[in-house]
């Protein structure tokens, strides 16, 4: 009984991370039908710049957090202005743009490698890592903060999308970008917002997950792939379905690792997703895309 509690908590923590990356990918996809292969790199940038600002430069925590978020927003703008826009202007297909974002991810990893080297680095924690007893469960403030931020960001995204007029623009662009732009919605602004907002989310994920995962410049790809898996499992069409998909993946992962061996976790999840896609092509919770191929 105790073990399942521990497993579920671990699943929820990792699930928050996968879910937020999945949500970010799905947000951008919703605005422009492009899969951002560099999403995990935003998390990596968050983690690595936390080391830079907190350890190397000794900034106070609040200033460091601000600086980290500035870094990821700048990176998002570079991606949008330097990769996405030029390719769109040249009439590139979404698949080509996707490869473009992958190229950006490769470049980001390469630059990070020059700055931080290939080794795994310790990342300072914002919240205490002191063991905390929560009933029968052992946890710590950092873990709880991740789950809290996950809930908070979900709520914020929901509020933005369903309670503001800008959110209406986002949703309209998601349904049909061409018609939305005919109705006077500045699709380019919506897309830029998608990049910046999702980078902010990923940056925050980076700050929180760094102390638990450690910082390594190659960590982005794994996170991107986990985010994809979350998004496909839940349904690429909706950010919230993607977030739910992330939690599902992480819980399964934790269950397999807890009761079997972590070696089986990834193959099992992969096979599971293939099987689910066979029966529900648009994800467990999504039928948003069903009519559009």
């Amino acid at each position: 009984m105790e073990q399942i509690g521990v497993i579920l908590l671990a699943g929820l923590t990792n699930g928050s991370v996968y879910g937020l990356v999945g949500l970010s990918i799905s947000l951008i996809y919703g605005t422009n039908r492009v899969i951002n292969f560099a999403q995990g790199e935003f998390v990596m940038l968050g983690v690595m710049s936390a080391i830079l600002f907190m350890v190397t430069l000794h900034l106070p925590t609040w200033a460091a957090i601000g600086a980290i978020l500035v870094v990821v927003v700048l990176a998002a703008l570079v991606l949008e202005l330097g990769v996405y826009q030029p390719l769109v202007r040249r009439g590139a297909a979404p698949l080509t743009i996707m490869i473009g974002t992958l190229a950006a991810a490769i470049i980001a990893t390469g630059i990070a490698l020059l700055i931080w080297g290939p080794l795994q680095l310790a990342v300072p924690n914002v919240f205490s890592l002191q063991a905390l007893n929560l009933g029968p469960l052992m946890t710590n403030a950092q873990q709880l903060a991740i789950i809290g931020v996950f809930a908070g960001l979900l709520l914020l995204t929901w509020y933005l999308m369903y309670r503001t007029s800008f959110g209406l623009c986002i949703r309209a662009t998601g349904v049909n970008p061409r018609i939305a732009s005919l109705m006077g919605i500045r699709a380019d602004r919506v897309v830029r917002f998608g990049f910046v907002f999702s980078a902010l989310i990923s940056g925050m994920v980076g700050i929180l997950i760094g102390p638990l995962l450690g910082g390594q410049v190659g960590m982005g790809v794994t996170l991107t792939v986990k985010g994809f898996m979350a998004a496909i499992l839940g349904g690429l069409g909706s950010p919230f379905a993607a977030a739910a998909g992330g939690v599902m993946i992480a819980v399964v992962e934790a269950l397999v690792a807890g009761y079997g061996s972590s070696l089986y976790a990834e193959p099992i999840i992969f096979s599971l997703i293939l099987a689910i896609l066979f029966f529900r092509p648009y994800g467990l919770l999504g039928d948003f895309e069903a009519g559009r191929r």
Partner: peptide, 22 residues
């Protein structure tokens, strides 16, 4: 391929990348 190729092409991209990592 069977589950993925009925879908839009980026599903294949994402899932095969996952296959590589697995």
């Amino acid at each position: 391929g069977i589950p993925l190729l009925r879908l839009r092409s980026h599903y294949l991209a994402m899932a095969t990348l996952c296959f590589g990592l697995v």
